[in-house]
Design a protein around this nucleic acid. Sequence first.
DNA 1: TGCCAGGCCCTCTTTAGGGCCTT
Length: 203
Amino acid sequence: MFNADTVVILDFETTGLSPDGGDRAIEIGAVRLENGQVTGRFQELMNPGRRVSGFIESYTGISNAMLAEAAGNAEVMARFADFIGDFNLVAHNASFDKRFLDAELARIGRRYPGQFACSMLLARRLFQAAPDYKLGTLVRYANIPVEGVFHRALYDSEMTAKLWLAMLSELSGRCRLGEIPFELLYRISKMPKKSVPGFVATL
DNA sequence: TGCCAGGCCCTCTTTAGGGCCTT
């Protein structure tokens, strides 16, 4: 197998774009990848204690009625902190999900020790010919079958996991490494774009 | 009252501006 590291790939649905501006998580979805296989899934709605906008209802398909029946953020995020444990994390445009994860966990006094990698940054370096770097575009670019609706947390995390595996496959096809550790992917995702092809050729 | 993100990346750049990506 080309990656023996276990990673948790996650996606939040939220009330808006900025936790600093008062926005909250309303759904968390995640898959655990072990040896390239999905070995765990997590999906829960959470009630942020306020109504969400009509825009968010239509964007996510998550209604105020659905959230009214959900457990509160603290209860759900505590379960999610147990799920991620000390594994490394991945999300598409991770700077967004990391802000919400940090904010929601800070509210309940929980932390995570792993590194947080971004599939969008890695795609910009490994799929430089892609037309753009939206999750849906990259999934189609990598010829990953689409069989659900984007903008729900578990589905988007499943698609991000498949994209992550497609990038692992792409990289393993371009180098001689038998196993590609998370640390290497993380390092490539932070490298200047121009230096990536030359670096990969040395592996 | 009125406002409302932020990190990355490119370029007509670095004493900056604007588009992308996430909800």
